[in-house]
C-alpha cells in the first residue's frame, strides 16, 4: 500500500507540524501533542477538551477554535492519547470555570481520560465528562465494551461548544453534551478495509464484491458482511438501523460522514438517498452536514448520524463556529 508518508513512526508528528503551519490561529505543541486555541484560557469560559487516536481527522484537532473545542489531544494512530497530554491541555485551557472532557466510548480512551481527570482534579481543575456512545451497530450489553463513539462526537462538540461560548457554567455545558449524546445515533458501512501506516496493508480482508455493515472508525470489522449494495440500498439499511433505535418525534440534524476514502461526489449522492429514505419514514431534517469529518484513514464508506434536536440545540448548532474544519456564522 502506497502512502504519502516518510516513515510510519513519525506520521502523527509530521501531520501536527503541517497542521501548525496551516493554522497559526491555533497553538500546536508537536512534542507534547496538544492543540489549543491561541486565546486560551478564555476568561470565565468553560473549556472543552477532547482527544482520541489519530487517523480520524479532522476530528478532533480540526474542531479546535471559537464555538467548539478549546483543546484536542491526538494519540498515535487509532490509539488513545495518554493522560499526560490531557492534563497538560487541561491546565492550558482552564480559566477556573472548569474543563469538560469529551470522550468517545472506547476502552482505551475511557481509561486514559479517567486517569487524566483524577490527575487534573489533583491540580485543582474542575473536570466534567461526557461519554459519546452513538453507534447502534454495537449491542450495548454486559458482553461488549458498549456502544462506540462515532459521528455524534461532532454534534456534541459543536452544540456544547456553542453553549460554553455563551458563558454557561460547567454543569449546564456537561448536561447539554450528555443530552446531545442521548438523542444521537449513528451507523456506518465500509466498502474497503483500512490500512494503518504501521501495518502498511489492509487490517482485514474485504473482497471487491462485498461490503461490511456496522463498522467502527478504527478499522475493526463490522457485524455483518454482504454482497455489495447500491447507494440507495445502503441508505435504507443505515437509516433504518438508526431509526430502529432513535425513533425521532421531531426534527433531526443529519451528518452524512465520509470515512476518508469516498469521494464527495459519492457522498452527496448518498446524502440524496438518505434524505429520500428519511422523507419516506416521515422524518424532518432540520440541518444537513455532508463531508469527511469523523474518518478512518483511507477507508471507503460512510456513516449516517442523526440527532433529535430541540429548539435550544438547534440554536446552538446554528451559532457561529470558527475552526479549521467547521466554520460558519463567524
Amino acid at each position: 500500500m502506497k502512502m504519502l508518508i516518510n516513515v510510519p513512526e513519525t506520521v502523527v508528528a509530521d501531520a501536527l507540524r503541517g497542521f501548525a503551519a496551516a493554522h497559526p490561529e491555533l497553538t500546536v505543541d508537536v512534542e507534547n501533542r496538544v492543540i489549543v486555541r491561541r486565546d486560551a484560557p478564555v476568561a470565565g469560559k468553560v473549556a472543552l477538551l477532547s482527544g482520541g487516536g489519530s487517523g480520524h481527522e479532522p476530528l478532533h484537532g480540526g474542531f479546535v477554535g471559537r464555538g467548539m473545542l478549546d483543546a484536542a489531544c491526538p494519540g498515535e494512530v487509532f490509539t488513545s492519547p495518554v493522560p499526560d497530554q490531557m492534563v497538560r491541555a487541561a491546565a492550558a485551557v482552564d480559566s477556573g470555570a472548569g474543563v469538560l472532557f469529551i470522550v468517545k466510548n472506547y476502552t482505551g480512551d475511557v481509561l486514559n481520560f479517567d486517569m487524566a481527570a483524577e490527575l487534573a482534579e489533583d491540580e485543582g481543575i474542575m473536570v466534567g465528562k461526557v461519554l459519546v456512545n452513538d453507534d447502534v451497530a454495537v449491542t450495548d450489553s454486559l458482553f461488549t465494551a458498549g456502544r462506540r463513539g462515532t459521528g455524534a462526537t461532532l454534534f456534541v462538540e459543536k452544540i456544547a461548544g456553542a453553549l460554553a461560548e455563551e458563558g454557561a457554567p460547567l454543569e449546564r455545558v456537561q448536561a447539554v453534551a450528555r443530552r446531545v449524546n442521548e438523542v444521537s445515533r449513528s451507523f456506518g458501512v465500509a466498502l474497503t478495509a483500512v490500512s494503518t501506516p504501521a501495518k502498511g496493508a489492509p487490517t482485514f480482508d474485504l473482497p471487491a464484491g462485498e461490503l461490511e455493515l456496522g463498522i467502527g472508525i478504527h478499522g475493526e470489522p463490522g457485524r455483518e458482511r454482504r454482497a455489495m449494495m447500491t447507494s440507495g440500498e445502503i441508505a435504507e439499511f443505515a437509516v433504518d438501523a438508526v431509526l430502529d433505535d432513535l425513533r425521532p418525534d421531531g426534527p433531526v440534524l443529519l451528518l452524512v460522514n465520509g470515512m476518508g476514502g469516498t469521494p464527495l461526489l459519492e457522498l452527496y449522492g448518498f446524502n440524496a438517498e438518505v434524505h429520500r429514505v428519511l422523507g419516506a419514514r416521515g422524518v424532518t431534517v432540520a440541518r444537513t452536514l455532508v463531508g469527511n469529518y469523523v474518518t478512518s484513514l483511507d477507508m471507503a464508506g460512510a456513516s449516517v448520524s442523526l440527532c433529535r434536536v430541540d429548539e435550544e440545540m438547534l440554536r446552538l448548532w446554528d451559532a457561529p463556529v470558527s475552526t479549521p474544519a467547521l466554520c460558519w456564522g463567524a
Binding site: 487516536g53 494519540g75 498515535e76 490509539t79 488513545s80 492519547p81 495518554v82 493522560p83 499526560d84 472506547y106 476502552t107 482505551g108 481509561l111 486514559n112 486517569m115
Partner: peptide, 12 residues
Amino acid sequence: LISTVGGASGPL
C-alpha cells in the same frame, strides 16, 4: 507505560 503506550494497554 501509562505515559507512552496509550490505548487500553497503557493504563492496564
